[in-house]
């Protein structure tokens, strides 16, 4: 399938691209044919700065299973961070 579905997540943070670090304010999350990963379908995330017109993207293409593991790992890290640092994670 080619899916047109894009889930836009508003972010606060930075990512490192080809020219160095940049602010990112959006993640475009989708599931479709990857461009590079040797998979039939992949979970894609493009980190961009839409405020600046998204001239560059920092992209990943992940298998469905590894994307789920990543999502869980993010939640685990946030939970541990909150416990250790007391931030509002």
């Amino acid at each position: 399938m080619c899916s047109y579905i894009v889930d836009k997540v508003r972010l606060t943070g930075s990512a490192k691209g080809q020219a160095g670090w940049l602010d990112v304010d959006t993640a475009n999350v989708y599931f479709d044919h990857p461009f590079h990963a040797m998979l039939d379908h992949a979970l894609g995330i493009d980190f961009v700065n839409e405020r600046d017109g998204a001239p560059e993207r920092i992209a990943v293409e992940l298998s469905a299973e590894s994307a789920k593991q990543l999502a869980l790992s993010i939640l685990v890290a946030l939970k541990r961070g909150a416990a250790e640092h007391g931030d509002a994670a």
Binding site: Y4, V6, N28, D32, F35, D46, A54, R57, A59
Partner: peptide
């Protein structure tokens, strides 16, 4: 790059 251009179009809904 075709993949970056495609990503831009996707983000706008095609």
């Amino acid at each position: 790059s075709p993949d970056d251009i495609g990503a831009k179009v996707r983000a706008r809904g095609g």
